[in-house]
Amino acid sequence: MQLSKEEVYDYMFATYEKSSTIGINYGYQRFEKLLAPFGLSGRVPEVVKRILMN
């Protein structure tokens, strides 16, 4: 059985996500951690953090 490119990419991303966000279950921190290696993360203002966490 051979996987399609999309299935391979899905598997690669799922593996990356599991290994890079250990201990971070939800919220903006999870996305910041995932985006950082690609130079796409940034500072989240305190007011946005409070809104997202509530």
Rank of each mutant, 00 (worst) to 15 (best):
L34K: 00
M12Q: 15
L40H: 05
L34S: 01
E17Y: 06
V48H: 06
L40I: 05
L3C: 07
G42V: 04
P45A: 04
L35Y: 15
Y11Q: 14
E32S: 10
S20R: 13
S20N: 15
S20L: 15
G42S: 10
P45T: 03
R30D: 01
P45L: 07
A14I: 04
G42W: 05
S19Y: 14
G42K: 07
Q29P: 05
E7Q: 14
L40R: 07
L35T: 09
G23Q: 06
V8R: 06
M53F: 10
E7R: 07
Y26W: 13
Q2M: 05
T15Q: 13
L40W: 04
K33N: 03
N54H: 11
L40Q: 10
V47P: 07
Y11G: 14
Y9T: 09
P37E: 04
I22V: 15
I22T: 12
L52V: 01
S4R: 12
M12W: 12
F38P: 00
Q29V: 08
L40N: 06
R43V: 12
G23W: 02
Q29C: 07
V8D: 06
M53L: 12
F13G: 01
Q2C: 12
G23K: 02
I51Q: 13
E32Q: 15
V47M: 11
S19T: 10
R50M: 03
Y28Q: 05
Y16L: 04
E32T: 03
G23Y: 02
E6M: 10
N25M: 15
D10N: 09
M53D: 15
I51M: 14
Y11W: 12
P45H: 10
R43N: 08
R43H: 14
N25S: 13
K5R: 13
Q2K: 09
F13D: 03
L34Y: 02
P37F: 03
Y28D: 01
S4H: 07
L35G: 03
S19I: 11
Y9Q: 09
I22D: 10
N25G: 15
I51F: 11
F13K: 04
